[in-house]
Structures are given as structure tokens and as C-alpha cells.
Simulated scan of single mutants.
Amino acid sequence: MTGRSRVIAVPALLVLLIAMAGPWIPVDSTTVPIGGPFEAPAGAHPLGTDVLGRDVLPRVLVGGRVLVTQAAAATLLGSLIGLALGVWLGVTHRRTAGRVLMRMVDGLAALPALLLILLLATGVPGNDAAVAAAIALVTVPFSVRIIRECTARLAATDYARHAEARGERTLTRVRYDILPGLVPVAMAEAGIRFVAATQLAATAGFLGLGAGAPVANWGRMVRENGTGIAMNPLPVIVPAALLILLAVGVTILLDRASESTRLAPERIERTA
């Protein structure tokens, strides 16, 4: 990892640490007002107060866990679905079934992502899991297309075609001929998916989806405190900056990880 990448990756890891461990840090209440709205930072309250006079620091420490968990869950679920469908579409000879499935995927991709999230999440109000599932669903079509194209390219290589000519099972060919070359692409795609999922989770929080107020949420904090940015910008700037560092840093980390796992374009020998 280069020095420039490390500069971004280290803050991203710190953001993840804040998001996941922040709720365990002993701080003041996230819901009880401790002063007037948008008070400037003071010794005991280094980020000042928010729109309701609550201490901003505890809300920043608590507000990232749900958002990061939603993004991670949506990334994992969407990647698993995208990988399964994309690999099947890339190796299957059932062209009619493949075309029908791709038209369904294209139809889902044509729907506005935010509108679909609103429809699905509002159907189960106050449910963070519903938001994560909705985010996974709207990002699956792009994963399917990327994985399908890469799988089809790998399936057309000489060693993969020779394996098929020998009558080897599809799962065996996928394991030894497709997955080794697919791993770097899948990891890079997961990085893009996580960035998109983070943005969508923050947007969902901004719109009030999932667990409602007074639960702290970085996305909701940006919306709630926008009116007082001239008096105390920290309740808006700090959660927004954490989201940006997280998205950019995780992308770089996964990109470097995908480079380290990139294999030569030759078949991995089976072990007895």
C-alpha cells in the first residue's frame, strides 16, 4: 500500500472504529439537552450542541453504528445475490431462462433507487433491517451485470472450455476455472457497492427512514442541524466528513485487497 493510500485508509479504519465502538464509550446522554440550540464548542462539549441543545459528541459516537451496519449488511447480501445470479448467467446454456432473468434484472435497475427504497422501507416503518434489505435490492442489478460479463469472459478461456469438453460438472468448473479470476472483480465491485450502500443508508437516515428520532444517525444529523450551520457547523460537518472518509477509505482498502488477490490468468491445479 502506498503512502497516499495509507493516509486515506487509516482514517477510514478510525471511522469504522468510531462507528462500531462509539456506543460503548461512556459519554453523556444522546437525548437529554445540555444547553441551548447550536451552542459553540466548549471544554466539556467539544462539538457544541445541536438543534435541540443536545451534546453533539455523544450523538456522533452513537450515530454511525446503524448506518455502517446497514451498509455492510446490504453489501454482503447484495454481493451474494449478485455473485450467484451473475455466475449462473455467465455459464448457463439455458438462453431463454437467462434472457428472462436478465430482463427482470434490467427492469429492477430501471426503477429509481431512492423511490424503491422509500416504498420498501416505509412499508415497515422504523425497521432498520428493512432499509438494509431495500438497499441490497436496488444495488443487485449492477452487481449481476458486472459479475455476468466477467464470468462469461472467464468461461470462454481455453482452459475453461477444455474442462467443459471433458464433461466436468458446472460447480467444479466454477470453483476452479471461474472463481479464481472472479475474486478481484468481486472485491472491487463490493467496494463500489459499499460506497453506494453507505450513501443510500445516509440518505435513508436523512429522510427519516428506519429507526426514528431521537435515535442518532449521521445522515439524519446532517438534515436536523442544517438550519444552524451558521451558528455551529460542527453538527453537520463532522458526520458528513465521517461519511466521506469512510466511503473513500473503504474503496481504497478493497481496491488494494483485490490487487493482492489477483491471480495469473491460468488454471489452478486441483489437489488430490
Rank of each mutant, 00 (worst) to 15 (best):
L16P: 06
L17F: 15
I18L: 12
P26I: 01
P26N: 05
V27A: 15
D28L: 13
D28F: 10
S29Q: 03
F38Y: 13
E39Q: 15
H45D: 07
L47Q: 01
T49C: 01
V51H: 15
R54W: 06
R54K: 07
V56Y: 03
P58C: 02
R59E: 00
R59N: 00
R59T: 00
L61F: 00
L61R: 02
R65M: 11
V66C: 11
Q70C: 14
A72H: 09
A73K: 07
T75F: 05
T75Q: 04
L76M: 08
S79V: 07
A84Q: 10
G86P: 02
L89T: 02
T96L: 14
A97D: 08
G98S: 09
R99H: 12
R99Q: 11
V100K: 04
V100E: 02
L101H: 01
L101Y: 01
A110Y: 06
P112R: 09
L115W: 15
L115C: 12
I117N: 05
L118A: 12
V124L: 12
G126T: 04
G126Y: 10
N127L: 07
D128P: 11
D128Y: 05
V131D: 06
V131G: 06
V131R: 08
A132G: 05
A134H: 10
L137F: 14
P141L: 09
V144W: 11
I146N: 10
R148A: 01
R148H: 06
E149T: 14
E149Y: 12
T151C: 03
A152D: 08
L154K: 09
A155S: 14
A156W: 10
Y159Q: 03
A160H: 04
